[in-house]
Amino acid sequence: MRIEREATSDHPPFEGPAPDRQRFRLRPHECSTWRVLGVGLFGACVGFALGTVGTVGTVATAALKESTDTRVARDSDVERANVMLTVFAASSLAEAFDDLARDFETSNPNVVVRNVFAGSQILRLQIEQGANADVFASAHEEHLERLMRAGALKGARPFAENELVVIVPTARERLGGLGGTGRSGRPAVRSFEELNQVDRIVIGSENVPAGVYARAMLSRAEAYLGPAFVHDVRSHVVSQESNVRLIRAKVELGEADAAFVYRTDALGSSKVEAIEIPPEINVRARYFMGVTARAKSTAAAEAFVAHVLSPEGQGVLARRGFASLDGTAGANRAAGPRPEGTGGIRP
């Protein structure tokens, strides 16, 4: 706004500056009013500042107390501590982890689980930059490995598997639209081999696990369906999204004809239907989770990991469409040192 002022003040002929200045000059009787106002405002500010400092102090003390509490509680009992557990999880885990969190809170009444969902690569970046996550669940091993190398994560264990599918709008969505004007003339894609005929494809960005897996799958498809097919598919990509739910949303909105997402994402939406990717070229996604080095309550965090790996936790994931690790959850290769004491804590 200041910029406009300067620009307009360049036109003295129309509005002399003198009367303007007159208007804003403080007169003696106004001065006292201004003073009173100023002192009042200052008082308000000081009050607000003190209040803020007070609140911050209280919160800090509480946090300090909490952290010492949980440190004491680590070896004894999770349930005694009043813990806020922050779980960073890949977008595709959203509904499953909300279920898991609810179950965990029921069996551990003093733990409150706060889930944060985003693309695994964004969550990893946030943890690197100091975000307060206690547990990190990623759709790709790479992000946990990078955190472990940096000493930000104590260990990583696989806990579920998933695979890619192609999603297309359901017939109803295709014909629906506003006044049925959508794209009723266009035939639907029925198989993976027809994918090069669609106009607009959405894929994950090159860093989000869903995009990494889709790219790996497409390179495999070159040998199977020929480079021309894959080139066609690639040239119809209209957007690269940063998490798998944003990819799915583009098809749900009718803005994309096809997209690569996980099978669980296709199951979770009534507006899309899944087309199988030939098993010869499909890529399996393996999910890993671990406790962060800065976790405020390691005990609760490890208990949550144990809960996800438990038969009940695996059942929740299976109900949401995730493949279990052949009944050998936790026995698969761990990509680093195992979290300590996981077995000793009652979930």
Binding site: T181, G182, R183, E255
Partner: peptide, 17 residues
């Protein structure tokens, strides 16, 4: 804008025809 000019949108559906 997406709701308006998207392919299924208020104006976009007509434009796409």
């Amino acid at each position: 804008l997406l709701q308006t000019f998207g392919r299924m949108g208020f104006v976009g559906a007509w434009l796409s025809t």
